[in-house]
C-alpha cells in the first residue's frame, strides 16, 4: 500500500494481503541501502500465516519518494509515525542491520509500541569505514558493489540460491541501485554517527531475539553476541554459513528463528 508519512508518499508492503492493525502486527525494517525486498522470502510467508505485516521502504528507498532520513533516531520516529498512521498500537519489530539499530531506538524511546524486538545481523553500533562512506557519496555504484561483495557469504559468491534461478548477489545490487541517489550515503552516515546503541539496549524492556550470521563480515557475530549480552531479555539464534544478507542467503533458517520467537498470530 502507499500512504503519506510526514508529507511524503511511501510504499509499505503488506505481503500482498489486506492489513488489519488490530491483528498481530510485524514491522520489518530494512537495512542501509536496502528496501522491503530484504524480506522477499519471509514477508509474504508470514503475511499468509496470519501475521499482519508492514514492510516499509524508508523515504527515498525502493518505491517510496521523499528525502532520505539522516539519523537513526529520525528513522525510529518515522517508524513510530508509520505505526500511528496505520492504526497500530503495538507491533513486534524486526530489523535487519541498520533496521536493527532503528528497532533498538524505537524500543528504547517508545517502549509502549514495541511488543518484541528481533535484531537480524545487527550490533550495538555499526561503524562505517570512511572509505566506504566516501565511495557512497562520490561513486555510489562502487559502494554498492563493495557492500554486495562483503554482504554475502560463500553461497552468495557461488551464486547458489534456494529460490530457483535467483542470482542473489546481482539481486542485492540491483535492489540497492533502485534507491534514490544519496539514500545509501544518508543511511551509512546515520549508522556511522549513531552512538546510542548501548544505552538504548540497556533500556529495552521487551523480549528480544538476536539472529546472527556466522560469517557476517559487516556486523560480525561476536558483536551480535555482545549486543545480546547487553539486552535484558535476549536470546540468540545463530545461522551457520550465512553472511550479512542472510534473509536471502538462508531464508528458511531466518524464518525458523522468527517463528520460534514470535507469538503465533491470534
Amino acid at each position: 500500500m502507499k500512504i503519506d508519512v510526514n508529507g511524503a508518499e511511501v510504499f509499505v508492503s503488506t505481503g500482498g494481503r489486506p492489513f488489519d492493525p488490530d491483528g498481530t502486527v510485524l514491522l520489518l525494517i530494512h537495512g542501509s541501502g536496502q528496501t522491503h525486498l530484504t524480506w522477499l522470502l519471509q514477508g509474504r510467508f508470514l503475511a499468509n500465516r496470519g501475521w499482519q505485516v508492514l514492510m516499509p521502504d524508508l523515504p527515498a528507498h525502493g518505491l517510496s519518494v521523499g528525502e532520505p532520513l539522516t539519523s537513526i533516531p529520525d528513522m525510529a520516529a518515522w517508524c513510530a509515525q508509520l505505526l500511528k498512521q496505520t492504526g497500530v498500537k503495538r507491533a513486534h519489530v524486526v530489523g535487519h542491520s541498520q533496521g536493527g539499530l532503528v528497532g533498538l531506538e524505537l524500543a528504547s524511546s517508545q517502549p509502549e509500541v514495541v511488543a518484541s524486538l528481533t535484531l537480524v545481523a545487527t550490533a550495538l553500533s555499526i561503524p562505517v569505514n570512511p572509505a566506504l562512506l566516501e565511495l557512497a557519496q562520490s561513486r555510489e555504484e562502487k559502494a554498492i558493489a563493495a557492500m554486495t561483495d562483503w554482504g554475502h557469504g560463500r553461497e552468495g559468491h557461488f551464486h547458489d540460491a534456494t529460490m530457483p534461478g535467483l542470482d542473489q548477489m546481482n539481486f542485492t545490487s540491483h535492489v540497492m541501485a533502485s534507491n534514490e541517489t544519496g539514500a545509501l550515503f544518508a543511511d551509512l552516515s546515520a549508522c556511522a554517527s549513531y552512538d546510542g546503541g548501548e544505552d538504548a539496549a540497556r533500556s529495552v524492556v521487551c523480549p528480544c531475539l538476536c539472529i546472527l550470521a556466522e560469517n557476517d563480515r559487516m556486523t560480525p557475530a561476536r558483536q551480535g553476541r555482545k549486543m545480546a549480552a547487553t539486552l535484558t531479555d535476549a536470546r540468540e539464534f545463530v545461522i551457520s554459513g550465512a553472511g550479512h544478507m542472510l534473509t536471502v542467503e538462508k531464508p528458511y533458517e531466518v524464518l525458523k528463528g522468527l517463528r520460534g520467537f514470535l507469538p503465533h498470530p491470534a
Binding site: H159, G165, L166, N170, F171
Partner: peptide, 18 residues
C-alpha cells in the same frame, strides 16, 4: 536446471534466469 539457470544469470550479470 536451477544450477544452469543460476550459472547463466551469473555469467550474464542478471538477477535471475529461467
Amino acid at each position: 536446471v536451477a544450477v544452469l539457470e543460476q550459472r547463466l544469470a551469473a555469467l550474464e550479470g542478471g538477477v535471475a534466469a529461467v
